[in-house]
Computed example of a mutant assay.
Amino acid sequence: MADIQLGAHTIRSHGIKIARFHMHDWIILVLLGIIDIILNVIEPFHRFVGRDMLTDLRYPLKSNTIPFWAVPMIGIVLPVFITLGIYFKKQNVYDLHNAVLGLLFSVLITGVLTDAIKDAVGRPRPDFFWRCFPDGKDVYDNITTNVICHGDKSVIREGHKSFPSGHSSWSFAGLGFFAWYLAGKIKAFDRRGHVAKLCIVFLPILCASLIAISRVDDYWHHWQDVFAGGFLGLVVASFCYLQFFPPPYDTDGMFALYLPCWFQYSISWGPHAYFFMLADSQPQNGSTSIAADNLNVIPTMIEPMYIQSEGQNHLALRDSAPTLDEMEAGVDRRMQ
Score class of each variant (00 low, 15 high):
residue 20 R to P: 07
residue 183 A to F: 01
residue 119 D to K: 04
residue 100 V to A: 05
residue 64 N to V: 09
residue 181 Y to E: 02
residue 255 F to H: 14
residue 159 G to I: 05
residue 312 Q to N: 13
residue 284 Q to R: 09
residue 163 F to E: 01
residue 225 D to Y: 02
residue 331 V to G: 06
residue 145 T to L: 14
residue 112 V to C: 07
residue 165 S to Y: 07
residue 226 V to W: 02
residue 313 N to E: 12
residue 211 I to Q: 04
residue 178 F to Y: 09
residue 245 F to G: 05
residue 269 W to T: 15
residue 120 A to E: 01
residue 312 Q to C: 09
residue 210 L to C: 11
residue 307 I to S: 00
residue 332 D to E: 15
residue 149 C to K: 01
residue 174 G to I: 08
residue 183 A to T: 02
residue 305 M to A: 12
residue 318 R to E: 09
residue 96 L to T: 03
residue 255 F to D: 15
residue 44 P to I: 02
residue 14 H to N: 10
residue 242 L to E: 01
residue 112 V to T: 06
residue 316 A to D: 05
residue 121 V to P: 01
residue 270 G to K: 09
residue 27 I to F: 14
residue 157 R to F: 08
residue 164 P to A: 07
residue 133 F to N: 03
residue 269 W to K: 10
residue 322 P to M: 08
residue 68 F to K: 12
residue 241 Y to L: 02
residue 141 D to C: 05
residue 304 P to N: 04
residue 121 V to E: 01
residue 62 K to W: 08
residue 157 R to M: 14
residue 155 V to I: 15
residue 213 I to Q: 10
residue 213 I to R: 08
residue 94 Y to L: 02
residue 148 I to P: 12
residue 147 V to T: 13
residue 228 A to Q: 02
residue 16 I to C: 10
residue 324 L to E: 15
residue 103 L to K: 02
residue 25 D to H: 15
residue 332 D to M: 13
residue 250 D to H: 07
residue 283 P to E: 00
residue 306 Y to R: 07
residue 50 G to E: 02
residue 279 A to M: 00
residue 55 T to G: 15
residue 274 Y to T: 03
residue 207 C to T: 14
residue 279 A to P: 00
residue 63 S to R: 09
residue 143 I to L: 11
residue 87 Y to E: 00
residue 327 M to N: 05
residue 145 T to W: 09
residue 219 Y to I: 04
residue 263 F to E: 06
residue 140 Y to W: 04
residue 167 H to G: 11
residue 177 F to C: 01
residue 320 S to A: 15
residue 313 N to L: 11
residue 150 H to S: 10
residue 256 A to W: 10
residue 43 E to Q: 13
residue 296 N to M: 12
residue 153 K to L: 13
residue 20 R to M: 11
residue 298 I to L: 07
residue 196 A to S: 14
residue 327 M to L: 06
residue 94 Y to T: 04
residue 179 A to G: 08
residue 164 P to K: 01
residue 217 D to E: 08
residue 130 W to P: 04
residue 123 R to L: 02
residue 289 S to E: 12
residue 230 G to M: 06
residue 293 D to Y: 07
residue 241 Y to P: 01
residue 154 S to K: 10
residue 248 P to F: 01
residue 170 W to R: 05
residue 109 I to L: 10
residue 230 G to E: 05
residue 265 Y to R: 14
residue 255 F to Y: 13
residue 168 S to V: 09
residue 217 D to M: 15
residue 17 K to F: 13
residue 215 R to V: 06
residue 3 D to E: 12
residue 272 H to Q: 07
residue 56 D to I: 10
residue 169 S to E: 04
residue 274 Y to I: 01
residue 105 F to C: 03
residue 287 S to A: 12
residue 51 R to V: 13
residue 263 F to H: 13
residue 107 V to K: 01
